[in-house]
Each structure stands twice: as structure tokens, then as C-alpha cells.
Design a protein around this nucleic acid. Sequence first.
DNA 1: TCAAAAGTGTTCTATCTACACCCATGT
DNA 2: ACATGGGTGTAGATAGAACACTTTTGA
Lengths: 217, 217
Amino acid sequence: MSDARASSAPVVAAIVAIFAVRDGRLHVLLVHRSGPPEEDTWALPGGRWDGVETLEAAADRVLARETGVQDLYLEQLFTASGLDGAQPSVAVAYIALVEPSTVRLRQEEAWRPAWFPVDDLPLLAFKNNEVIDQAVRRVGAKLDYSNIAYGLLPEQFTLRDLQTTYEAILRKDLDRRNFRKRMISTGLIEPTGATRREGAHRPAALYRFASREPVVL
Amino acid sequence: MSDARASSAPVVAAIVAIFAVRDGRLHVLLVHRSGPPEEDTWALPGGRWDGVETLEAAADRVLARETGVQDLYLEQLFTASGLDGAQPSVAVAYIALVEPSTVRLRQEEAWRPAWFPVDDLPLLAFKNNEVIDQAVRRVGAKLDYSNIAYGLLPEQFTLRDLQTTYEAILRKDLDRRNFRKRMISTGLIEPTGATRREGAHRPAALYRFASREPVVL
DNA sequence: TCAAAAGTGTTCTATCTACACCCATGT
DNA sequence: ACATGGGTGTAGATAGAACACTTTTGA
């Protein structure tokens, strides 16, 4: 059907680890593979690169397809070859950070997407467990010296919300006072002046990120 | 000559930013392009990926071809698409660190390689100036919390050698006493017991890296 | 008045920075 | 003896970690 060199025309795909914090736990979006290869397993969503758009555009397209959101935090992680053992393939992995309430998951039954807590994943196709591990480590490392958490939070949020997000990613408890001091002193966030009341206790001051573009300290 | 879909069979290549410290300055290895595209400019050495080997093996092959050395420090930087505007292309960029005395540059006149100081580069093909910028930043960032400098130094070295290497990459002078204290306290290096005499002054103690595999603190 | 989360300061410790003099050697 | 780079310690500043009580609200 195809000549011998067909095997040297590689497939280039973007795969995206889409993260969100839900109920205080970090989740990643996976799709149920409804066809070969690796049928009937879960894996990171991906899409073939068309050779025209940039790789980042391909990743953004995957994100939009699965979640309906776009133009959020998107960062390249690394590139792996041979994840699909059956043919020459290159997968360029990206990290995306989304705020759950903005997301409308794609609804089709085939290749349906679902959130999984990152610390309780099944065995995934294409060594995607390792990809997700590295992605979580990368996000955790950048939390401390950048504003990337803006991707995971709504426009306005309380310091408690922010801390819960940090704790979900770092998987450890943080001291409330020290956290507050450090966050405010970085200048990455600023008070909006508004407060939020919910429940029988003092209302919490609301904050926003000073910038919703990536900033590195 | 080829059907319309030829444009969707992308070229995947590994390109390698090979660094060495020479005369106290950080240098990068470039090759003079003796054919299209971008003929007669300088660019990072690269090689097409064959679809069978891993991408890292392709990068290692480029390194070995240009320098004769192999199995040194090699780390993936990032992947860019469309660097070659003429066709669908993906370039996976790697960083390699070598010790100049171990290197024998490829001698052919065509596509000849040469060392360039990173702070005095010509305008390179395929936006390689940006690639090198990012690579230098990455190496600088990792110096402080890893042993990657082992790639740039011989088996044994003095603390002065090590400091010179750091200063070349970070482009700033470091305090000799503080540098020594920090390096020794990390445990990444250890004294060999030997000394080196050269010139009319006290001999310098020689050190080695405790591990010549990548270690992150 | 009680429960529940918000908000706030100080002390201690570890780490980083700045800085100057003596040591071993070759000429 | 002198010139050259190797080797060492201390004091001050800064950043991070530990820790407990008061405030505001809804029920």
C-alpha cells in the first residue's frame, strides 16, 4: 500500500496535560480511547499537528476541543519520541491550567473526557503517567517564582482559595500567615477591595492577579 | 513531483547547542551552512531524525559527528515548529556540555564547525540566536542546584577552574571564599587529595565531582 | 453566645553577602 | 625577597519557619 519509506514520515502530535483544582485536589483531564492504538485505555488528549499552524496552536486546539476554553496558560513541557510503539511518532507535550467553572467538557460518548485526581490515576496509554508526573513537578516548581496559578483561579479569589490551590499542587500544608505574607510581598497579587461572605464567619478579602500574563520573579 | 500532501509529511530534526568554556568565556559550536536553505550563514548543528532511534539518540549522533565525543551531558531544551519557513518542520533543541580538550572538531571544509563566544554571535539562521539565549539561561539556572558543570570540566579541576566556569556562564564575578564554601557544602564535589602546581605560587588542591551523572539538589 | 474561618506580629534559625590577611611556591 | 595565586573566618543582613490570639460574621 505504501512504499518502504512510509515508516519514515513521522506523525507529530501535540498532547496536553490539562490541570484543574477541584475539591482541593489537583485533577488532570483524560480521554477514554475509543479506537486503536491502545483502545479502551485512558490517555492525555492530543491532536495531530497539521504542519502549518505552530505546535502551540495545535495544543491550543486540543484544549479548546476538550474544554471549550482557549488562550489560557499553556506551556511546553518536553517532546518524546516513540510513545506509540507502532509507528514513528513524536509527541510534544504541553501543560495547560484551567479554572473548572469555565470549562464545558466535550460531551460525546466516543473519546469522552473526564477529570482524574493526579494522585489516583489508572495505568495510562503511551507512558502518559510519566508525562503527568513531570508536568506536576514542573507546575509545582514554577508556583514559587511565577504567577502561573492565575490559570487555575477565577478573576477574584480569597487567599484561602489561593492557598488551597498551592496545597493541592504541592501536596503539603502551608502556614497560613507565612503564605499570606509571601504572596502579598511578591506583588503578584493585589486586593480588589471587595470581600466575599459565605457562612457564619468573617468575610474574606478578595484578591486578583496583578497580571494575567505569565510573570517570572 | 510530489503530491499535495507532501507538505504534511514534516521534517523532524534534532539541533544541539554544544557549549564549552574556552579562555574563560562560554562558547557555542556553530556550523557554516554550505547549502540551502539559509546557505552561507551559521547555525546550530543538527540532524534529521530517522524515526527509529530516539530523539535523544539523534541529538547524541549530532554531538558525536561534530565533536567526536559522546555520552556527555545532554538535555532537551524545547521544540520549535516552523523554524525553516520553507517546509513543515519540527526542531527539537538539545543542550550539550563538553570539555574543550576532549573535543576534535570535524575537519571537512563543507559545513565546517567552529566555536563562537555566546556574547558575540553573528545573526544566525532559523532564529538560532533565540534558541541559544534560552539554552544559556537554562544552563545558568541549573548551575545553582545541580552538578551539570561536570560536563564542562575535566575529571579533576581546581576550585578556581570551577569558579571560572561558573563566571563564564553567569557573566558575573563571584566571591572566591563564598563560592568555595557553597560548592563544598553541597557535597557535589570532593577533594581528590592531589594538587596541581603551575607557576610561582602555592599549588591548588584538585577536586572531582562526586557523581558524573546528573544530580539535582 | 457560640462556632467557624479571617486576619495579624514576633522570635528564632539558617542562609547569603561582604570583606582582608596569611600561605606555599617559583624565580 | 618578592610576586603570584591558594587558602581561610567572621560579622551583619536577609529570608524562611514556627507559632497563638483577636476579629467578624451567621445561626
